[in-house]
């Protein structure tokens, strides 16, 4: 059971809510007390668009405990249009091969079950190829 931790991070996880530094305007994800760009205090919420591109990626076939029921899956560093990079799974890839530079968009999906269909379900961001139409 990690309900308190996931509860604390829900805005980040569900919708990529980060921060914008009031001093240097850097966009920050995940939120942190000290702006990594200018070193000053940062705490103004900022809603990321969820659009970005694959910066690098790999495939996980031997998934860690708790993630086996979604394996194999692709995991990537996604560079958000606003600047920051996030670590996230890629989902709904269809037949399209993953490539560096692939445009992707954020979706909120099940990350894992917190314990054998009895615990809390963890929802969070993943990315998929940008949907047309």
């Amino acid at each position: 059971m990690e309900a308190p931790r996931h509860w604390r991070l829900k805005k980040q996880r569900y919708s990529l809510t980060g921060e914008v530094c009031p001093h240097c305007s850097a966009k920050i994800f995940p939120p942190r007390d000290v702006c990594p760009e200018c070193g000053q205090e940062a705490k103004t919420a900022f809603q990321f668009s969820g659009k970005g591109e694959v910066f690098s990626y790999t495939a996980i076939t031997d998934a860690p405990a708790g993630y086996q029921d979604q394996a194999p899956y692709a995991i990537a560093l996604v560079k958000l249009n606003e600047g920051p990079i996030v670590t996230a799974q890629l989902t709904d890839l269809g037949t399209e091969p993953v490539r560096i530079g692939m445009p992707v968009e954020m979706v909120t999906r099940r990350i894992k079950d917190d314990g054998n269909e009895r615990g809390v379900i963890l929802y969070g961001y993943k990315f998929r190829p940008v949907m047309q139409g």
């Binding site: 569900y14 799974q89 979706v107 909120t108 099940r110 379900i121 929802y123 993943k126």
Partner: peptide, 13 residues
């Protein structure tokens, strides 16, 4: 639905 989808994730989109 995909392995990571349910009524909540689909409702969100």
């Amino acid at each position: 639905p995909g392995l990571d989808e349910d009524t909540i994730t689909m409702s969100i989109e």
